[in-house]
Amino acid sequence: MNKTMRITVDGRKIRASPGQTIMDACDDAGVYVPRLCDVEGLVPQGSCRVCTVKADGHTVAACTEPAEPGMKVENDTLEIKNYRRDLVRMLFHEGNHLCPICEASGRCELQAMAYRLRISQATKYPYLQPVRPVDASHPDIALDNNRCILCGRCIRASRDVDGKHVFEYVGRGIHKRIGVNAENLAATNASIDDYAMSLEVCPVGCIIRKREGFFAPIGARQFDREPIGMDVETRQEHHVPKRRPDPAFGNDGTK
């Protein structure tokens, strides 16, 4: 059962272990599959769809689709790139993403993904310009939901790593947003030291750590130094297998 298998990604043969997702196999082999909702250390959920690949002719989310022996994966093709561009554009247009005034600029994964996918022109989509309430009640943390891309990383980090369950999805459809476990964030047991509140978790500028803004000058910000995905693409050299939490959690957060 523990035998490794081979899959092909854009013609390149890579190894995958049984039960591994396409994404994890690619990461271990140093092949980057763009993603926003998935991050190392959390259970993948397949919601942003930016990691869409074609596996044996079917479009699937690489972060949740198990690798199968001999699977042929298309990752870096024009068709897939177009889907990803559309998805990233949708996220930009769904919220209010004004990079020049955003504190997360330069370390924002949405912004970095747009650069990686070469989205630099105004797009054809309409702007939805939501007006969602900002929750600045907590002494150390503010939440600007207008920048949220609903990746749910804070939900999983708080639930599975912090054991707190500060966040959860509420509402549905285009009105879906992230709710907090009380009237507002100050009334929850959220703390600035939670993993959920760390810079690693929120990919955009929705979770704001108060009094820490603009800590890195332009030119020295995370993605100024290295484009998104390069950490994976250079991973082959050190070959550290990817970290994933205990699968006992299940993929829908059942405790």
Binding site: C48, M90, P126, H175
Partner: peptide, 21 residues
């Protein structure tokens, strides 16, 4: 469909709104 989308994934949550517009 916009009303009934669960909102889990980006294309269905956002894309349908754009289709309508």
């Amino acid at each position: 469909f916009i009303d009934e989308s669960c909102g889990y994934c980006t294309p269905c949550r956002v894309g349908n709104v754009f289709m309508k517009q």
